[in-house]
Nucleic acid binder design. Structure first.
Length: 190
DNA sequence: CGGCTTTGACCCGCGC
DNA sequence: GCGCGGGTCAAAGCCG
């Protein structure tokens, strides 16, 4: 997979600090947890990058911001009322896998083939760019993701996926290589 | 007109 | 207890 090797050249030239809103189509078919099992990190993108050996130049992107947060009581089934505060602390054991990776791209929204609905945006400490919260629009699929652009290198977008899709992707991934030629993927598992 | 984004409020955990 | 930081809700507006 020399494509990844290819990215690292000609990247720095394209950081034109313009966050154009053209949607970039990144289609990762069999990655990002499409499946029933949890924690199947061996396949898909993460495993792919793990075995191809991401070059060590990514120390510029310290993922000290990526701290695993298992509590994350976001397991709202959508039925509980805030006022009632049923606070389902019991099923905290069902922690969801969270996969974060960083892509060097000029666009904020990396379309990975799923349909996402934005449900929030917050300013993050130590970052001048806000973090966006998305949820998969597919029925019964409450996969969430966060997209955040780093202050240190505004050419890098950090995407954190939480949960596993229970439905197939709908788009094709034939232009995957074309996408890869436009961005640089870092990896991190948490 | 329906789906999505925007955006302020709300909630909650945690540290002081 | 209070403030802060982060995550979510939901009403209103936008847009194809």
């Amino acid at each position: 997979m020399e494509i990844f090797e290819g990215f690292f050249h000609g990247l720095s030239s394209s950081s034109s600090s313009s966050s154009s809103s053209t949607s970039l189509s990144l289609n990762l078919r069999n990655s990002l947890g499409y499946g029933e099992l949890q924690g199947d990190r061996d396949n898909g993108m993460l495993g792919l990058m793990a075995e191809m050996g991401v070059p060590g130049s990514l120390n510029a992107v310290k993922n000290n911001d990526l701290h695993e947060n298992e509590g994350l009581g976001g397991t709202t089934a959508g039925t509980d009322e805030r006022i009632g505060k049923t606070k389902k602390g019991d099923n905290r054991k069902t922690r969801k896998p969270r996969h974060a990776f960083q892509t060097r791209s000029q666009v904020d929204i990396l379309d990975d083939g799923y349909r996402w609905r934005k449900y929030g945006q917050k300013a993050v400490k130590n970052n001048k760019f806000p973090r966006s919260y998305y949820r998969c629009t597919h029925q019964g699929c409450n996969v969430k993701k966060q997209v955040q652009r780093l202050t240190r290198d505004e050419g890098i977008v950090e995407t954190t996926y939480e949960g596993l899709h229970s439905h197939p992707i709908q788009k094709t991934n034939d232009n995957f290589e074309h996408i890869l030629s436009q961005m640089q993927i870092y990896t991190s598992s948490l």
